[in-house]
Each structure stands twice: as structure tokens, then as C-alpha cells.
Design a binder for these strands. Structure first.
Length: 775
DNA sequence: AGATCTAGCATTTTT
DNA sequence: TGCTAGATCT
């Protein structure tokens, strides 16, 4: 414990021991940033700073948990427990629970996720009689969100002629009114959306000096990780809190700023020195993670960006293998290449699945990869994507739970008031909603006070509404004495959510039941863990945790090692020995939507930089010549990022003949031509909850002795396909040796462009050209 | 009120 | 292409 400083290099140690005043640590990829942060906090505590006075803001709750554990090993677990650590959202949600009353919010306020927000905006647009094609709910929410991130309240909006003019020009002059409605409705429902957690905190700190003073006093030392991805709202919160003691330490890497699309402002990190006085700058430039080839290759790419801070990332590590580049015909072959390669690497190098990660730009790319991994019987986990918590049955179940914590939660109420069906239809809900707006009460309050309103409902409906309200209140009472799991279990049984689904008997129904079961398990785990730690095991706290946990947080640490599949965004902060980056094609990565401005493109490039620097030993870059996108087959150009890497770090791969043949047999002859089986692979009955895994059982169900079937196999698999692949060295009877540059067409029409040493580039019909593949 | 059908969106990334 | 919310029918 005493010599923890010995584990640090010179610059790391300086950053750890420098105690007071504003400081910025510019930390290159893999430079031991987390280590510095944890040791720094531990060091502060060793120097007598009370854990209660340290606030540390991280990007995910998982990161916070892990850091806490590591600090605990240095200073003792019980002391480390007292640290304030977590994401901006979760830390300030907690503060708002106790201080929100200043702003008129109850302590049990609900946190709306984006789905709730979109639904609320949709109904507002409808109620206002606006054209939903002009006022697209999602876009409106995006606009409102960007207002909130910049601290533009409704009032500020109306005081800003430029914003209003812009909306008018865009034919959407009513945005201000929608915004106003949205804010009012959230308030009435006792709800905050994600942006509110930051905006309301800002309001709290600016409007209530006593509250500000209290937290300024409490947080004598503030540390912010991933500072490059903070938005304006977050910047202001940090600034306000640090204003008194000025002990603010921010850590980040401008080269890894990838969240501009949700309001992150790279200027926060670029201007830190201007925003605070007497800033001390520390730079961590030695990379301990990756091979020299990877570090240098990544540097050669990021150099192309104009906006960046001055730093030089280097490593002592050996060169390692070159980065492998693989071009395939389509996304199916891309998936198979990755699966085969992982298989081979595992065999040759004694590795396990958890040594591999597959990164992609968009979630939709995971499908082809999943198929290939399943075919090869390789277990995998997917992070992100359609989150477990977004599924209908889960949201429905959670809505009941939310409602008993906060009956005014309008979005939750609307979801379940007639689910399972209890004869309270749309027209009734509309009437209630109108009354609620009129009396400025929540729908639930209206239901509880039907007699005091002039609402026109028949006796039958009134009874049903009363029963509903009674049920919820009954749940509420149960919740007072039970832990989160007991309540949830009780509610699921009472509402017959599961029983109804079980009756329906369809595969979807079965999967939904399983998902609800999985949710109950998760709540059970949560309850047990919290109790073990001696922490809050209430339902309210579970709901908050569920609302603010990132997808990474939700992944269960478990048993068998698995290959990780995730978007590059989610991969920030992680590292893997072997990394496959797939879909390196123009319009996909860089994304077609991010090529309009230099700054957007630079963000894409930073994203690529992040992807590449996740790799420790080996990186593979894959791209396909064609791929299905939104149902259409699209030709794909290789990504510009491939060309931006200095060629000397790259090696272009070719498929080996034997491999190709073997794959054809396993993948196409057996499975490809049996549609029923194919369907099972494509769409696992259950896109598994929380943790996803390849299910080995499904793997070899197709009879092994299935005869070779003629007829058209799946989309791209073609019996005529030649074994020739791009990058192959081939020998032609007339032209001699050459290299395959590209392939086009399929089946008998497949052509190859080949560069021969003797005659230059030739295009040949493979059907006729007798080629011998050399390598 | 409930069941069935259909059009339109989505595929850029997420707390 | 596959899903969902809203529209339309019974």
C-alpha cells in the first residue's frame, strides 16, 4: 500500500501527487488513465482528504464501481464507500431526489427514458392538432434536448429571436409551444427526462445559493473523467461546484471525443486552460496497451484531423503483427471471415472467446456477424442494441412498478391502464387526459376524484377506473413493507401479466414470459447484492438504477467467456487483445450522415481512432464490396480511413483455398439450402435478455448427412461462386502470375480484375479464365 | 372495445 | 428488410 506510487511512470506520478488547483490530464489512448485517476483519489485520501469531500464523475456507472473497488484495495473498502462516484446523471439524480423539492419536484420523481419522451411529445402534437409529418416527434425531442443541453429554457427560447426564426423557417413555428407543453407535462407527472437531470441541477445551483454553497462545501475535490465528452450543461455544473475551492481535475483525450451528436462539446476540453486560472497541464503519452504497429497506425490516421491538442502518443511495446485488412464480397462473408479467423486464432494461440471483440459502427451490422458466430458455435455477447429495458413486456412490467412509486407518472399510466385489457379504452383515456389538462392534475388524481369533476363517463367505466386505482394503491401499500423483488413478484402475479402471455402460447409469448422472468431475476439479484452491501434495496432505487444504467452496466458478468459484439461508441474505455472492426466502407463508416462538414468527419475519424486503439495485440479491418442496407443490396467503396493508415502498417489478407472450400461445405451446402434451418439461425426465438449468447444446441440440428442439394441457396451464397478472392495471388496459363484486385458479379458472370506482372491489369470472366490460386 | 391490417420508418452513435 | 404505431374494420 505504501509503495503504490512505484507503479507509476514519471508523468503519471506527477499527475497523481499534484494536489490543489485546476488541472487537466491529457491522457492518450491506453496511457493508464484509469490507474492515474484511482491512485490520485487514493492519494488524496492518504493525504487526509475525507472521502465524503471527493466527487468523481465517470462516464459509466460500471467504471465508477470498478474504480471504487480499486481504490478500496489501497485505502480500505469501508472508506472508499464514502466517495461520491458515478455518472453525471446518476450523481445528480441522487442530489435532485433530496433537493428537487426546491424546484417543486417530489423525491420520488420518475426518470423518463427517450421512449417515454417521444410518446409524450407524440400525444402533445396530437392534442395540439398539429401535422405529425411536419412535427416529427423524434426530431422535436432532439431539438428540445439540444435546447436543454445548452440551458435554453422555454423562456430563453422565446427571448431568442434567432432560434424562433430558424424554427419558423423550417415550417415549425409551434416548437416553442410544444416545448412549453412538454415541460409542463413532465412537471405535472413528477418526471424528468435525461436532460432534465442536468438542466434541473443547474437551476438548483443557480437559483438556490444555499444549496450551491452546501454542495460546493461538500465537494472540495472534483474529478471528471472523459471530459472531452461533456456537454455545456455538464460544464456549467462542474464549474459552479468547483468555483469555491478550484480543486478541479479533468481527464480526457480530445482525440476520443465521439459524442457531439448528443451535445458533447469538444471545446470544453480544448478551452479548459482558458476557463480556469493557473491550470496545471499533465500529459500521459506512453501507451501501455497496444503494439507499436497499432499505436503508429492510429497516430497516422488521427493526424489528419485539424482540431486537436498537442500530444504524441508512443509505446515501448514491440511492433507486433501488422494490421490485417480483409475485403469480402458481402456482409455474410465478412461475418464468416471474422468467425473463421477467431476460430483459427483461438486454436493457434491458445486464446479464449473473451480475448476477442467485434466492433461496428451501427447496431444493425451485428446480425450477419451473429449468424456466422452461431454457425461456428462461438459464444458471444452483444452489448447495446435494442436494450432489454426497451422491450414492450419489460416496459409494461416496469410501468406498473413506476406507477406504484409515482402514480402521477403519466406515460407509465397510459401504458398499463388497459393492459392487460380491463375495458378502459382509448376514448376513456382521452377524456381523462382532457380533464387532467383542464384541472392541471395528473390522470391518476382525476381517477381518484371522479366525483369532483364534470367528466362524462358511465357507471361501468367508473367502476373499472376505481378498481384500477384501488389496485395501484394496494400495490403501493405492499411496497412499503417489501423489498424490490417481493413487490415486483407480487405485482406480476396480481396483474396476471405472465399468465395472459402464457395462455397465448406463441413463440413470441413464450419469449416475453422468459423476458419478464429474466427481469424478476435481475431485480432479485439487485436486491440480494444491495442487501449484502448494506445499501438501498428499495424498488424506487432499482428503477433509478435501471433507468440510468448504461448498456455496458447491464451486461452480466458471467461464467463462460464470450466474444464481445458492440458499437464503437460503447467500446470507449475498453480493451481487447484481438479486435475486429467490420464494415469499413464509405457511407457506413464514415457514416453517410456525418460527411457533410469537416467537424462531423473529424468526429468519425476520432471514432475510428477509438476503435483501432482498443486492440492490444492484433487488429483486423474488414470491409465488404456489397451489403444489404435497408433491404437493398448496395455497392460499397472501401472506407477512406483505410487509405489514411500508412500502408507500412498494413497487410492485405487473402482467403486460403482450403478454408473457402470448407466453409462452402459447412455453411452453404448444409445450411444454406435448407430454408427452415436458415430461418432459425437468422432469428433466434429469443433475442436473449440481458445477456445474449449463442445457443450451441441450435447449432448442428441440421442432419449431418444431408445430401448436397441443388437449387438456389441463400442470397449471396452461390454454387457458381469461384474460390478466387480479392487479394489472392493467381497464375494464368497465358499471362502468368498476378494479384486479384477486385471481383464483380456472381455466378457464371463473375469477373475478376487482376494485375499481372507481365501485362498489367486485366478483367477476366472467371468461368473461362483458368486460374490457379497460389496463395 | 377489441382485433386486424397497413403504412411508414428505420440504420449513426446513448445517458 | 422487419418492426411498430396508428388506422380501419367488426
Amino acid at each position: 500500500m505504501d509503495n503504490y506510487l512505484d507503479n507509476l511512470n514519471e508523468s503519471q506520478r506527477e499527475a497523481v501527487v499534484h494536489k490543489d488547483g485546476p488541472m487537466i490530464i491529457i491522457a492518450g489512448a491506453g496511457s493508464g488513465k484509469t490507474r492515474v485517476l484511482t491512485y490520485r483519489i487514493a492519494h488524496l485520501m492518504n493525504k487526509g482528504v475525507d472521502a465524503f469531500n471527493i466527487l468523481s464523475l465517470t462516464f459509466t456507472n460500471k467504471a465508477a464501481r470498478e474504480m471504487k473497488e480499486r481504490i478500496g484495495t489501497v485505502v480500505g473498502t469501508s472508506e472508499a464507500k464514502n466517495l461520491w462516484m458515478g455518472t453525471f446523471h446518476s450523481v445528480f439524480a441522487r442530489i435532485l431526489r433530496s433537493e428537487g423539492h426546491h424546484l417543486g419536484f417530489p423525491s420520488n420523481f420518475t426518470i423518463y427514458d427517450s421512449q417515454d419522451s417521444v410518446r409524450l411529445i407524440t400525444s402533445i402534437i396530437k392534442e395540439m392538432g398539429l401535422d405529425k409529418d411536419v412535427y416529427k416527434a423524434k426530431q422535436i425531442l432532439g431539438r428540445i434536448s439540444s435546447f436543454k443541453n445548452s440551458l435554453i429554457t422555454v423562456k430563453a427560447y422565446y427571448n431568442n429571436p434567432e432560434l424562433m426564426e430558424a424554427d419558423k423557417m423550417a415550417q415549425r413555428p409551434k416548437i416553442g409551444e410544444i416545448y412549453q407543453q412538454y415541460v409542463d407535462r413532465c412537471f405535472k407527472s413528477g418526471s424528468m427526462d435525461f436532460d432534465d437531470l442536468l438542466l434541473r441541477t443547474n437551476q438548483l445551483l443557480t437559483q438556490f445559493p444555499a444549496v450551491l454553497a452546501k454542495y460546493q462545501d461538500r465537494f472540495k475535490y472534483i474529478l471528471v473523467d472523459e471530459y472531452q465528452d461533456t456537454n455545456h450543461s455538464q460544464y456549467l455544473i462542474v464549474r459552479a461546484l468547483a468555483d469555491r475551492f478550484q480543486n478541479i481535475c479533468v481527464v480526457g483525450d480530445d482525440s476520443q471525443s465521439i459524442y457531439a451528436f448528443r451535445g458533447a462539446n469538444i471545446q470544453n476540453i480544448l478551452n479548459f486552460q482558458k476557463n480556469y486560472d493557473n491550470v496545471k497541464i499533465f500529459k500521459l503519452e506512453q501507451n501501455y496497451r497496444s503494439s507499436n504497429n497499432i499505436v503508429e497506425a492510429a497516430n497516422s490516421v488521427i493526424e489528419k484531423n485539424k482540431t486537436k491538442l498537442d500530444k504524441e502518443v508512443w509505446t515501448d511495446n514491440s511492433d507486433g503483427e501488422k494490421i490485417k485488412v480483409m475485403r469480402t464480397i458481402n456482409e455474410i462473408k465478412e461475418g464468416r471471415f471474422v468467425a473463421d479467423s477467431i476460430f483459427e486464432n483461438k486454436m493457434n494461440n491458445q486464446l479464449q472467446n473473451s480475448d476477442f471483440a467485434i466492433l461496428y459502427r451501427t447496431n444493425s451490422q451485428s446480425r450477419a456477424i451473429e449468424d456466422a458466430l452461431r454457425e461456428k458455435n462461438i459464444e458471444y455477447v452483444i452489448f447495446g442494441g435494442l436494450s432489454f429495458y426497451q422491450r414492450k413486456e419489460i416496459k409494461d412490467t416496469l410501468s406498473y412498478l413506476r406507477l406504484l412509486i409515482n402514480p402521477n407518472d403519466e406515460e407509465a399510466l397510459k401504458r398499463v391502464i388497459n393492459y392487460p385489457l380491463r375495458g378502459i379504452g382509448a376514448s376513456t383515456v382521452d377524456k381523462l387526459s382532457v380533464a387532467a389538462n383542464h384541472y392541471k392534475k395528473s390522470i391518476f388524481e382525476i381517477i381518484c376524484n371522479l366525483n369532483k369533476t364534470d367528466i362524462n363517463l358511465n357507471a361501468g367505466v367508473r367502476t373499472k377506473l376505481n378498481n384500477f386505482a384501488t389496485m395501484i394503491q394496494h400495490f403501493k401499500i405492499e411496497a412499503e413493507t417489501k423489498d424490490a423483488y417481493e413487490v415486483a413478484d407480487f405485482v406480476v402475479k396480481q396483474t396476471r401479466l405472465v399468465k395472459d402471455l402464457e395462455k397465448d402460447g406463441t413463440p413470441e409469448g413464450v419469449s416475453r414470459v422468459e423476458n419478464i422472468q429474466e427481469l424478476l431475476n435481475a431485480i432479485k439479484n439487485f436486491t440480494v447484492e444491495q442487501k449484502e452491501k448494506g445499501e438501498d434495496a428499495s424498488l424506487a432505487f432499482f428503477l433509478e438504477d435501471a433507468a440510468l444504467a448504461s448498456d455496458l452496466d447491464k451486461a452480466s458478468k458471467d461464467d463462460t467467456p464470450k466474444v464481445s459484439l458492440l458499437t464503437i461508441h460503447l467500446s470507449k474505455g475498453l480493451e481487447f487483445p484481438y479486435v475486429y472492426i467490420v464494415g469499413l466502407e464509405e457511407n457506413l463508416f464514415p457514416s453517410a450522415m456525418s460527411m457533410n462538414t469537416r467537424s462531423e468527419l473529424e468526429e468519425e475519424r476520432r471514432l475510428f481512432y477509438v476503435a483501432l486503439t482498443r486492440a492490444e495485440k492484433q487488429a483486423y479491418l474488414c470491409h465488404a464490396q456489397m451489403r444489404y442496407r435497408w433491404g437493398k443490396l448496395v455497392d460499397c467503396e472501401p472506407s477512406r480511413f483505410l487509405e489514411e493508415i500508412d500502408e507500412k502498417y498494413l497487410e492485405h489478407l487473402t482467403l486460403k483455398v482450403a478454408e473457402t472450400k470448407q466453409n462452402k461445405f459447412i455453411n452453404e451446402d448444409i445450411f444454406g439450402s435448407v430454408p427452415q434451418n436458415k430461418i432459425r439461425f437468422k432469428k433466434p426465438i429469443q433475442r436473449a435478455p440481458i445477456k445474449k449468447k449463442a445457443s450451441p444446441k441450435m447449432e448442428f440440428q441440421a442432419p449431418k448427412n444431408l445430401k448436397k442439394v441443388t437449387g438456389k441457396p441463400s442470397a449471396s451464397a452461390n454454387l457458381f461462386d469461384s474460390n478466387v478472392a480479392v487479394g489472392n495471388r493467381v497464375e494464368h496459363t497465358k499471362f502468368g502470375r498476378g494479384e486479384v484486385l477486385s471481383l464483380e458479379g456472381t455466378g457464371p458472370n463473375q469477373k475478376a480484375e487482376i494485375r499481372f506482372a507481365s501485362v498489367g491489369v486485366k478483367k477476366l470472366l472467371l468461368q473461362f479464365a483458368k486460374l490457379k490460386i497460389i496463395s
